[in-house]
Write a protein that binds this DNA or RNA. Sequence first.
DNA 1: GGCTTCTTGCGACTCATTTGCAAAAGCCCC
DNA 2: GGGGCTTTTGCAAATGAGTCGCAAGAAGCC
Lengths: 159, 159
Amino acid sequence: MKTPPKTLTVLKDEAPETSSAEQLIDALRTKGFRITKIRQAMIEALVAASQPVSAPQLLEQVSQRHPSVNKTTIYRELDFLADNKILSEIDILDGMKRYELLHPDHHHHHLVCTSCRDIQCVEVPHHDLHALEGKIQQTHNFTVQSHVLEFFGLCRKCS
Amino acid sequence: MKTPPKTLTVLKDEAPETSSAEQLIDALRTKGFRITKIRQAMIEALVAASQPVSAPQLLEQVSQRHPSVNKTTIYRELDFLADNKILSEIDILDGMKRYELLHPDHHHHHLVCTSCRDIQCVEVPHHDLHALEGKIQQTHNFTVQSHVLEFFGLCRKCS
DNA sequence: GGCTTCTTGCGACTCATTTGCAAAAGCCCC
DNA sequence: GGGGCTTTTGCAAATGAGTCGCAAGAAGCC
């Protein structure tokens, strides 16, 4: 809303915030990266995912279409996609990282159900956290680069 | 300050917020648990720690006095102490959990240096987060039980 | 089609954390 | 101050996420 329109093409009428797999792939191609079947399959799986996924989950997903994928490839590709700002890592304290598409102009947090491990997104008014980070910067001599804020509890179904 | 005095004995004049090892041990004894040398050594190590420690660190610490401790024991004991609300887990995203004494009437957050992994504590005005949790409860049908809020960046020495 | 370079598969490895089981150690009671 | 019951502990082996080196395989470009 406040950011000027980038070089993005017009979004499809559905899914107002999510980039489509094709867009992401085109962007990578433009940057000179190769578009392999696995890369494509991974991006599609991530676009299709309704919530953050772990590397093992992704391995299983991608294996369905590409039975010979190796977990090493999955991990390397996740790093690659994170480096290229296509996805972000989140941590729900259960021993492994999850990944979700990164929305360039929108930062959000999560509600993690401690019973069924379902994950919802929440918008948290950002100026509050920003103000807090400013205060910390001053009082603690600490340069805040990022933060993690996640809520744990019971979702509708489990409560 | 606002909580009425519990059945606690008078604190030593130093360390106004931290329970001493003896107090924690007495509390466990009262609950009927056995006080073993390892349990005692672990509590002492945790009381002495200046910042959250990992299981491997604790293993090394305790090994100095009890060379035959096994890592399994450390992990089991950490679970035990967490179950008994003596310590809390924190996650600084480097692949292993850390533990610190839980202060019953005081909840805080951390500043994690991404360069040297040093961890400082910060007090965050709690009513802000409480208000936020209330809002989430209403708008998302989600019963918040706990949250994680950690800041990552550069400490004074590393910036 | 051939070449160059980026990606991938494979196998072995690291390292935190967990499990089952039998031996050892606390604590309570006499 | 020893017995017995139960909690803790050590050991050895397993699990599971994530990583590494290297040689073979595929994209993209001519």
